[in-house]
Write a protein that binds this DNA or RNA. Sequence first.
DNA 1: ACGTTACCAGACAGATCTGTCTATTATCGG
DNA 2: CCGATAATAGACAGATCTGTCTGGTAACGT
Lengths: 189, 189
Amino acid sequence: MPAQTTERRREKPARARILDTATRLFYAEGVHSVGIDRIIAEAGVAKATFYNHFPGKDDLVRHYVTEESLRQRTLTAGLPAAPPRDTLHALFAYMCEVGGSPAYRGCPFVNTAAEYPDPAHPVRQAIDDHRRWMRGLFHDLLVADGHPDADRTAGILMLLRDGLVVGFDLDDPSALRATAREAVTRALR
Amino acid sequence: MPAQTTERRREKPARARILDTATRLFYAEGVHSVGIDRIIAEAGVAKATFYNHFPGKDDLVRHYVTEESLRQRTLTAGLPAAPPRDTLHALFAYMCEVGGSPAYRGCPFVNTAAEYPDPAHPVRQAIDDHRRWMRGLFHDLLVADGHPDADRTAGILMLLRDGLVVGFDLDDPSALRATAREAVTRALR
DNA sequence: ACGTTACCAGACAGATCTGTCTATTATCGG
DNA sequence: CCGATAATAGACAGATCTGTCTGGTAACGT
């Protein structure tokens, strides 16, 4: 019964541990394959604590998606200033770098959407938000680059982006890396 | 008690009813969201019958994938003879047609892969088979068209193909249809 | 010093899922 | 006509999943 060794203040707060663990497991194994019990066990959190922070699993999934979106937006915002076209190439180069990692399991948004068929579901709406942001990012960079027809080209870049995240997961990443830059160059031409 | 009204010979055999029902439900709602109980109920089949035909759910999923692959190969083989470049455009036009349907829920292979993280799993290997076939199809058509660098361009077409199936599921299909032909044309240039 | 807040441990209920098993019925080949 | 085959209905076991609830503990602010 002795007090647990914990100096709890040193650890991350419970909510953050839950979200971190959920993010890791959901991404690596899929949303429906990972149960709440496993998340609370690996997060080292009591069940009541989880349900104090989140109304239920769906809400945790929604936060998983929005947090991941926030992370990507922050990363993008932190890119060094550069000509818009360079930034576009840098974005795709970064995708290729991440996609080459052995832990790469595809795009968390695309993968999660595959498990939530109803487009009206809050999880899907969070995914839609992220995709709207990304399309807008492409569009704004193309406009800044003076590209004619920024709308349509942003659509093509979304196509390539989605193709890359799927391909890096399911095909040979090294072959794909070479293809990627070529495809982006052709698309921006 | 009274025989059931069945003239069983008139109906599709049980195995086909199982596969049809599984295909419909897996595609519409996702693999892990659909239980065996529901499949046998909607297929109008006894539980023992299911386990007589399939060793377990994973094997049913594998057959779902291979049957879907076979269906696409048969459809492709049945295309009217045409110059290879026309056939390529026809393939993408067909994707756009299918992707515009309100029941469209993305690519069954991509969606199923999202629920099977282990690349060594038989289900994933069946998906790999299908993707190899599709890449080979693009490659052969490009070679027949006299395209230089058929390898790399086939990779780009795979990129576009994957981007389309994701986009038709998650974005506005009508806007995407216009983008698609443009993107294919740019890629084949 | 004390009350509030956050957290922990774990039992519990109710649903659902996979897979096995029994017992029965219908159809077909020979 | 009869045995083999294939299908039916449904009970059952064991696991797992979500969500609730109880009771206790540790740290913090005031």
